[in-house]
Amino acid sequence: GATAVSEWTERKTADGKTYYYNNRTLESTWEKPQELK
């Protein structure tokens, strides 16, 4: 079946920190989402 992984995108802030952005829920998080573990 379909997985939720594609909803999350790994992004970088202007100062180079990595965060994760969810295209479906429009939420962002510093922690790696469960779906990516």
Rank of each mutant, 00 (worst) to 15 (best):
T25L: 03
S28E: 11
N22D: 01
Q34V: 12
E7H: 08
L36C: 12
T25W: 01
T9S: 12
A4T: 14
A4D: 13
T9Y: 08
A4R: 07
K12N: 05
T9D: 09
T29M: 09
E35N: 09
R24Q: 08
G1H: 14
P33M: 02
Y20H: 01
Y19R: 02
T3I: 13
E7I: 05
G1I: 14
N22H: 03
R24S: 07
T25D: 01
V5A: 15
T29K: 08
A14N: 08
E35A: 10
E35Y: 06
T29L: 06
T9L: 09
R24P: 00
L36I: 09
K37N: 14
K12Y: 11
N23W: 15
G1K: 08
A2M: 14
T25I: 01
L26A: 11
G16S: 02
R11G: 05
D15H: 05
V5W: 12
R11I: 11
A14E: 11
Y21W: 10
K17R: 15
T3R: 07
E31F: 11
Y21D: 01
T18H: 04
K17V: 09
A14L: 10
V5N: 12
V5I: 13
T3N: 13
S6G: 13
L36G: 07
T3V: 13
Y20F: 08
W30V: 05
G1C: 15
A14Q: 11
L36R: 04
Y20K: 01
T29F: 06
Q34S: 12
Y20G: 00
Y21M: 04
W30Q: 04
E7C: 13
N23D: 07
A4V: 15
A14I: 11
E10P: 06
T9I: 14
E7V: 05
L36P: 05
E7A: 06
W8I: 01
Y21H: 06
N22L: 01
S28T: 15
Q34H: 11
K12F: 10
S28V: 15
Q34C: 15
E31P: 02
E27T: 07
A4N: 13
S28D: 03
L26Y: 13
T18L: 09
E7R: 03
T13L: 04
N23I: 15
T3S: 13
S28P: 03
A2L: 14
D15Q: 08
S28N: 05
A2Q: 13
R24D: 04
T29E: 03
E35W: 05
E7M: 05
P33D: 02
S28Q: 11
A2N: 13
K37D: 14
P33G: 02
K17Q: 10
V5F: 12
G1D: 12
A14D: 10
W8Q: 00
S28L: 14
E10K: 05
D15K: 05
A2W: 10
S28M: 15
T3W: 09
E27S: 05
K32E: 08
R11E: 05
T9A: 08
G16N: 04
P33Q: 02
Y21A: 02
T9F: 09
T18Q: 04
K12I: 12
T29N: 04
A2Y: 10
T13Q: 04
W30E: 05
T25E: 01
E35H: 07
N22E: 00
A4I: 14
Y21N: 01
R24F: 10
L26F: 15
E10W: 04
P33K: 02
A14H: 10
W8G: 00
D15E: 10
K12M: 13
D15C: 12
K37I: 15
E31A: 08
R11K: 13
E27H: 04
T29G: 02
E31L: 10
A4G: 12
A4M: 12
N23R: 11
E27N: 04
Q34P: 15
T25A: 01
W8S: 00
A4K: 08
N22I: 01
T13S: 08
A14F: 09
G1S: 14
E27L: 07
R11T: 05
Y20P: 00
E31Q: 09
S6T: 10
Y19G: 00
S6Q: 11
T13V: 02
T25S: 04
E31R: 07
P33I: 02
W30L: 07
N23C: 15
W8D: 00
K37Y: 14
W8P: 00
E31H: 10
T25Y: 01
A14S: 11
R24A: 08
K12E: 07
W30K: 04
T18K: 06
N23Q: 10
E10A: 07
L26D: 10
L36K: 04
V5D: 12
L26N: 15
G16V: 00
K12Q: 12
R24W: 09
K17G: 05
N22W: 01
W8H: 00
E10L: 05
T9E: 15
K12T: 12
E35R: 04
T9Q: 14
A4Q: 13
N23Y: 11
G1Q: 13
N23H: 12
E10T: 06
N23A: 10
A4E: 12
E31D: 11
V5Y: 11
K12L: 11
E27V: 09
K12D: 03
K37W: 14
S28H: 09
G16F: 03
L36T: 06
R24G: 04
T13F: 03
T9V: 15
N23M: 14
Y20Q: 01
E31S: 08
Y19N: 01
E27F: 04
W30M: 07
G16L: 02
T3L: 12
Y21G: 01
V5Q: 14
R11Q: 08
E31V: 12
D15M: 05
S28K: 11
N22T: 00
E35T: 06
Y21T: 05
E27I: 08
Y19D: 01
T3M: 12
G16H: 03
E35I: 06
S6L: 10
A4S: 12
K32P: 08
V5P: 12
T18C: 06
T18Y: 05
V5T: 13
D15F: 06
Q34T: 12
S6W: 09
E35K: 05
A14G: 07
P33S: 02
N23S: 14
G1W: 11
W30D: 06
A2D: 13
E35L: 07
R24I: 14
T29R: 13
E35S: 11
A4P: 13
K32I: 11
L36Q: 06
P33Y: 01
Y21Q: 04
T13R: 03
G1L: 14
K32D: 04
G1Y: 10
L26G: 15
K32A: 07
R11W: 07
R24T: 08
L26Q: 15
G16I: 00
E7Y: 08
Y21K: 03
K12P: 02
T9K: 05
K17I: 10
T25H: 01
L36V: 07
L26T: 10
E10M: 08
S28G: 05
E7L: 04
T3G: 13
T18A: 05
E10H: 03
G1N: 14
K32S: 04
Y21S: 03
Y19S: 02
T18M: 06
A4W: 09
E7D: 15
E27G: 03
W30F: 15
T3A: 14
E31Y: 09
E27Q: 12
E7T: 04
E27M: 09
K32Q: 09
A2E: 13
E7Q: 06
Q34E: 15
G1M: 14
T3Y: 06
S6D: 10
E27P: 00
L26I: 02
D15I: 03
A2C: 15
T9P: 00
E31I: 14
E31N: 09
G1E: 12
T29V: 14
T25V: 01
T13D: 12
T13H: 03
A14R: 09
N22Q: 01
S6V: 09
